[in-house]
Design a binder for these strands. Sequence first.
DNA 1: GCACATGTTCTCGG
DNA 2: CCCGAGAACATGTG
Length: 268
Amino acid sequence: MPELPEVETVRRQLERVWKGRTIVKVECGAPSYFFVTSPRTLTRTLLGLKLLWLERVGKTLLAHFQDESRLLLHLGMTGQFLAKSLPPDPHVHMVLRLSGGKVLTFRDVRKFGKVERLAPGKSSPRLVKLGPDALSISEAELKGALQKKRVAIKSALLDQSVLAGVGNIYADEALFRAKIRPTRPARSLKQTEVVALAQIIRSLLKQAVDSGGSTINDYMTPDGELGGFQNFHQVYGKTGEPCPVCHRVLLRRVIGGRSSHYCAACQR
DNA sequence: GCACATGTTCTCGG
DNA sequence: CCCGAGAACATGTG
């Protein structure tokens, strides 16, 4: 569910509920690799912490607390953060009860999400590896990173050390809008193509944030809303339909283990 | 049963 | 040590 626009939407709504409030109770599910930090440690260390602000880096959320510790949250593929309590459900892994009677519920069916406590001054390999945030990536940064990559441009855009925040939907949509074929080696892109691609990535993600992200299956905002940007997708999930520009049939093929949707006529 | 799913990480071979 | 390909993780849907 969560690429940059979805995570940014979650961040905004969650911060509105959470900021300035103190965690008064922590309820965690069974230990699993889902909890990078064990449930036992989480319940002990999070209690009494007040949220100063909620940061997003790529697809990762970072809760900043008053004692300078941080909580890293990643939604994986199916993670949801809801600003209310839910009926009993085996997919709820963590519930944070806040001062003022507010409740935050973390639900994740496939359990690819992550919860990790970062002690004051400590980081995480998950953070260190991330490249520049895709919402503000510069032409020069993108150019520099792509130059070194021999992989398909589609795979390079999914590499979070190249730029952080783009996933399968927005990679396909950006390449379509830039008229670049997803199989092209990343370093084969011309200067003008990289410049156009960087601008398209920024504006595409900004528009998606303005629409509250894309809902395909599971994605729902903390306030229980669905995204709206799926209505503006031009190629993602549209295999066999006519290209919105040239009307030839859109194709699908697997690149770097992920399905890619594109127009063979428009994208070169 | 099979294919596939908005993500990341680990292993293996070159 | 770096790079890239593929599998693995867990669960659901069509």
